[in-house]
Amino acid sequence: MDALEVVEILVFPGLTFFVWLAFVFEWLDRKTTARMQGRIGPMLAGPRGILQPVADFFKLTSKEEIVPQFSDKLVFEWGPPFFFAAPAIGTIFIPVVGLNAIVSSPYDLLFILFVLAFSTLMAGMLGYASAGRFSTISIGRLVLQYASFEIPLLLAIVSPAVAAGNLSISGIVQAQSNFHWFVFVVPIGFAVFIVSSLAELEKPPFDIPDAKTEIAAGWMTEFSARPLAYVKLTESLSYVFLSALAASLFLGGTAGPVLTNVTILQDGIYLAYFLIKVFAIGFAIFAIKTALARVRINQAANLFWTVLTPLSLLQLGIVILLR
């Protein structure tokens, strides 16, 4: 590993870039929600409130850290950085400039599945470690929700891999150049992926684990100050991560329909395509989450087990037959 690679992983297009993107995403999320509700959203922090998530983050880091008496101190205090690490590591497998990611191996997708499972596991551990009543209820719901959305999500991720005949994300993106986007090949898989990622992100209509009106702030109830700042940042980062994953797997990622072979500024064009797609998927998720109300846990389980799992299986079958 040389110096350039370290810079790539830590600054651009690695960690710093994605953290910046996460802040922008959270701002866009709040703005979109506000606009859809007829409000104007954050206005004072920075131009048009763009620094609002940054202000929230730094304010949280400067507050007093409370560790509940009966909590598991080790996990409670050291868990949030690990929680943050899951999507942060996942992002380095996603191509941002060019058709190759910083790190790519033939088994990327297996690792991505591990990252998705690990972040849910970390959330569960953090919730249990804080030993609050609301957190415990929330973790029960989280595990049940995870058990219902994991299989459709997994099958939805696998179908573009089957279509490309490749398990590496860079390989899947390369297979989609020349406007051969997999959203046209596996449309059901794309829809299932979006719905399941709403559940993974704990956003409405699947915000069952942190239902504000029922169980306070869910598994985050006992967190304050710096751990809370990390947890909130991780949530936005997962947002970006899942949007980027959807863009790479289904919408061709950095590969665009036109201007694929100019000699100058090729990297800039790749980056522009990537950002346009990520923000498009982000906006779709913001709109869905603002427009819908929460479903009950049994309705969510029903939806995933009886509708989305058969659909994603059907999709997988179709893709295997078409190959």
Binding site: A34, I40, D56, T221, E222, L228
Partner: peptide, 22 residues
């Protein structure tokens, strides 16, 4: 908090747990 006044533009957010609150 509603559209007419919209306290969120000042950075106000209603949180669900006292541990998060200022």
């Amino acid at each position: 908090l509603t559209p007419r006044y919209d306290a969120e533009r000042l950075g106000v957010e209603v949180v669900a747990s006292p541990r998060h609150a200022d």
